[in-house]
């Protein structure tokens, strides 16, 4: 899901930086307005949390492992705007310090994983768990469904971004300069692997974590978000 440098052309990278600017500005205004002073460390904790979720190897049938992205989970715990900042910070640290996900592709990665993924997942979760009691099983099922769809929507977007590259950037003889596959291949591959495998990993992890928190720390769902 993390787009590295060199997969997207400069125009696409620039477009997503520009697209993310108002979102980042709005997110920082909303969070600053709603953030109580004592919640300041919580935002950093949320960012570190969204970073380390990706380090948990989740066992899947067949003896192999995959990992979750955790975008929807962080959105459920912090709220969509705070999660946008937290995931952006996690992605910037990954790109700058760990070389995972490109520096020039930070805008595109943030659009997919810090904006579309948490917002789509969060509002789906809110809709499905509308008026559900704190201990209701509808909540963790909604979290799982939101995790699955949130990740797949983000994967679809990443596929579209990859697939547009041969059309946007090519030589005079038509050879691709960046990601070499068109929409038909890129979208099918990205959506296919996430619908069949990684979406389920995300769903299971999101649902089980919410279920565990409902059982042992239900006050998290009562306190509200940033």
């Amino acid at each position: 899901m993390h787009i590295p440098d060199g997969y997207l052309g400069p125009t696409t990278c620039g477009f997503f930086y520009v697209a993310m600017l108002p979102i980042w500005t709005l997110a920082s205004r909303i969070v600053k307005k709603n953030l109580k002073a004592k919640q300041v460390p919580l935002l950093a904790i949320g960012a570190a949390f969204s970073f380390v979720i990706m380090m948990f190897n989740v066992p899947i049938p067949g003896g192999t492992t995959g990992h979750a992205v955790g975008g929807v989970l962080v959105a459920i715990l912090l709220g969509p705007w705070a999660s946008c900042i937290a995931i952006t910070v996690a992605l910037v640290i990954q790109a700058l310090l760990f070389g995972d996900g490109g520096i020039t592709a930070v805008g595109a990665n943030c659009f997919n994983m810090a904006f579309v993924l948490p917002f789509a997942g969060y509002y789906l979760y809110k809709g499905l768990s509308y008026r559900a009691a704190v201990d209701s099983s509808r909540r963790f099922i909604a979290a799982g469904v939101a995790g699955y769809f949130g990740l797949n929507i983000a994967a679809l977007l990443a596929g579209v971004e990859f697939g547009l590259q041969p059309m946007l950037h090519h030589t005079t003889s038509g050879q691709a300069l960046y990601c070499p596959y068109g929409l038909n291949v890129a979208v099918l591959t990205m959506v296919g692997e996430h619908v069949l495998v990684f979406g389920w990993v995300e769903a299971v992890v999101t649902a089980l974590v919410v279920k565990y928190l409902q059982k042992h720390f239900s006050e998290i769902f009562e306190e509200g978000e940033m």
Binding site: A37, K38, Q39, V40, P41, L42, I45, A48, F49, V52, I53, F56, N57, V58, P59, I60, P61, G70, L73, L77, V204, V205, L208, V209, K211, Y212, L213, H216, F217, I220
Partner: peptide, 28 residues
């Protein structure tokens, strides 16, 4: 076992969140 392993990972993530949430007050 795979299912048990998934529960262990979920428990770990949830536990990490609650521990960090509690840490928030001390850090502030």
């Amino acid at each position: 076992h795979t299912q048990k392993g998934q529960r262990i990972v979920a428990w770990n993530i949830a536990n990490l969140w609650t521990r960090s949430y509690q840490l928030n007050e001390d850090i502030y």
